[in-house]
Each structure stands twice: as C-alpha cells, then as structure tokens.
C-alpha cells in the first residue's frame, strides 16, 4: 500500500514518465484492490457469502464506520488525530435518546449541531492553547465517556419513538440501505467541497508543512478548527445511524469503533503524518475493515480476536505508508 507522493525522495528527480504516472495511479487504487481481493477470498471461503443479502447487511454495518472515519480523516489530513470520535459518538446516542421526547423531529439536527460544537471546542483548545491534538482528544475521549455515563445513569436508554430515525432503516431501490447512502453522501459532499474550494490546498499544505502553510498566508488555525468541527458533526451523524439500528442510546455504544475507524483511515492509505490522503481512501478502508470483521466468523476465527486484528492492521498499515524521511525522530 505504498503511497507515491509520500515515499518519493524529496529531491529533484528526472521528469515524470508515463510509466511512473501509471504506477502511481495503480498504487492509489491499492485499497480498492484490497477490497476486491478480500471479497474474492471470502467468497472462496464461503461460497454463500456473495449474496445480495449479506452484501446489503455488510453495507448497513459499515455506514457508521464510514461516517466516523470520513470525519476523522480531515483531522488526520491536517496532521493531527482525533481519538475522541467514538466516545463522542456514544455520548451523542445518549443525547439523542434523552432529547427525543422533547425535541421530536428536531433531535437529529440538535445532536449533530451539539457534537459539531464539541468538536469545534476541541479544535479551539488544540489551536489556541497549543496542545497536541493527540492529548486534547485523548482527554476528550475520557471526558465524553464519563459525561455519557453520568447523564444516562450508566445504562442504555430505550428509544420508544422510532419515527424520527425510521428513514435511516429504509432501503433505496429495495436493496441499498439508506444509512449507507447517507454515508456515501457525506464522503461525496465533503470531498466535493474540498476539491472545489481552496480548502483542499490549505488542508494539504497544513498537513505536509504547517510552517510553510503559515508563511504562505494559509488560514491554518481556521482550517484545523473546521476539521475538528466536521469530525464532531460526523460523530453525531454516526450516532443517529447507530440509534436507528439499536433503538436505544447507550454510553458505550460506539466505544468499540475507535480502533476500526483509525484502521480504516490508515488502511485507505491516508498518511498519519498528514497532507496525503482523501476521504475516498477512508471509505475504501472502512469497507475493508468491515469485510474483515464480517469475514472472521466465516473463516472460523472467533470474534473475540477482532481487536487483535485491528491492532495489527493499524501497525502494519502505518509501517507501510509512513514517510520516514519526513519524520526524522519517531516518538
């Protein structure tokens, strides 16, 4: 899963040849190739796997993960990391369950707005107080988990009124789960906004070289806060997807999604050091992770081993994609 722009040495090389371009194109499709290979392997292991039903189920399962990973990808592209997404998502499911009786149809908007604000607050803390994003969001992770436990009395809260989330459980054309369509829309819309505005330039410059970006007059601080805000909003949206499936809010509901989300980002080939990557890559990464998750029982591995798998994936993917010429001292 080598990523060309990252692994190329920073020297004046020979002019790009057609072959080099082709090679680069190929490697940027690596996550997609991994996806296809995985799908094929699972089909071989269990010929009954490649059916419409199981694919639909997998797509439905992947939706919250895709949304979480997409949001956090923005923060990673800026050169930071957001470890609070899963805890914030859990907190948001509790918010939803608690607010639904009062707010009714507005709950969805309120929850996403609230998590966006919380994300923005983390971004502001990171930028203004000059604390590493790793520490700010690790603190956030702990704080959000605790708040969720306190306001939920440490237990799940049933959601009785299912009308508000009903739309997410529908199927488009009878086969494609609505939640997955929404996740796709998030990726498409955010990617399009980045591509068609100066934001992408600013984000990449910030991630590759913050000091160069600053000296070029890029609004580095604003861009970073915006990335954390979108990451927070995505956590809120993922929470609503989870509630629509589980009919309850729970203070630990999304906690086991942190590692898969980080794994999705790095498997997609987004550089953990920032700058290089995209939301599309994270979408592919999230699908790979979901297939692995679904596939483990098929090949006879107990699901208790899942966490080992995520840990190994993250380390291996970063080992493959990390640009060690950029990071001189690995801490």
């Amino acid at each position: 899963m080598s990523t060309p722009a990252v692994t190329e040495p920073a020297v004046a090389g020979p002019p790009v040849t057609g072959r080099a371009v082709a090679g680069r194109r190929l490697t940027s499709f690596m996550p997609v190739i991994a996806l296809v290979v995985l799908l094929a392997a699972l089909t071989v292991a269990d010929p009954g796997f490649l059916t419409l039903n199981s694919l639909t189920a997998a797509a439905r399962t992947s939706a919250p993960l895709v949304v979480l990973a997409a949001g956090a990808t923005l923060v990673v592209l800026c050169g930071g990391i957001d470890l609070s997404i899963a805890a914030l998502c859990s907190l948001a499911t509790v918010f939803f369950a608690l607010w639904l009786p009062d707010l009714g149809g507005l709950t969805t908007v309120a929850v996403v707005a609230a998590t966006a604000a919380i994300g923005a607050a983390q971004g502001v803390a990171h930028v203004l107080l000059r604390i590493p994003s790793f520490i700010v969001t690790l603190g956030g992770l702990s704080i959000f988990s605790a708040i969720a436990l306190v306001i939920s009395d440490a237990g799940p809260i049933r959601v009785v009124d299912r009308d508000v989330t009903h739309w997410l459980t529908l199927y488009v054309g009878g086969v494609v789960p609505m939640a997955f369509v929404v996740a796709l829309l998030v990726v498409v819309v955010v990617s399009l906004v980045l591509r068609s505005t100066p934001l992408e330039s600013w984000i990449r410059a910030t991630g590759y070289s913050e000091s160069a970006a600053r000296l070029a007059g890029a609004p580095v601080d604003v861009v970073k806060v915006a990335a954390f805000t979108v990451s927070g909003a995505c956590a809120g949206l993922a929470a609503i997807m989870l509630v629509s499936r589980n009919f309850s809010g729970s203070p630990t509901m999304a906690d086991n999604l942190l590692l898969p989300a980080v794994a999705a980002i790095v498997v997609g080939g987004t550089a953990i050091t920032g700058g290089h990557g995209s939301l599309w890559r994270s979408l592919a990464g999230a699908l790979v992770v979901t297939l692995l998750r679904v596939g483990l029982p098929i090949v006879g591995v107990p699901s208790a081993y899942e966490q080992i798998l995520y840990g190994a994936i993250i380390v291996a993917a970063v080992a493959l994609t990390l640009d060690r010429s950029k990071v001189q001292i690995i801490k």
């Binding site: 591509r195 330039s201 990449r204 590759y208 070289s209 160069a212 700058g275």
Partner: peptide
C-alpha cells in the same frame, strides 16, 4: 526553502496559487 518556502509534495500549480487563492477562484469556487 524546502521546509518553509514550499510545500514539497504539492504541485507547482498549487504551490504557486497557495497564497493568492482569489487568483484561481470565482467567489469561493476553484
């Protein structure tokens, strides 16, 4: 130049228009 003047992996075009984004946009759109 290498660490502060330019963003190495970004293209010549994007480096050149990094500051004066208005010169490649119409409104907010590139």
């Amino acid at each position: 130049r290498k660490t502060e003047g330019m963003v190495g992996p970004m293209s010549v075009a994007d480096n050149m228009t990094l500051t004066k984004q208005g010169s490649r946009c119409t409104g907010p759109v590139v």
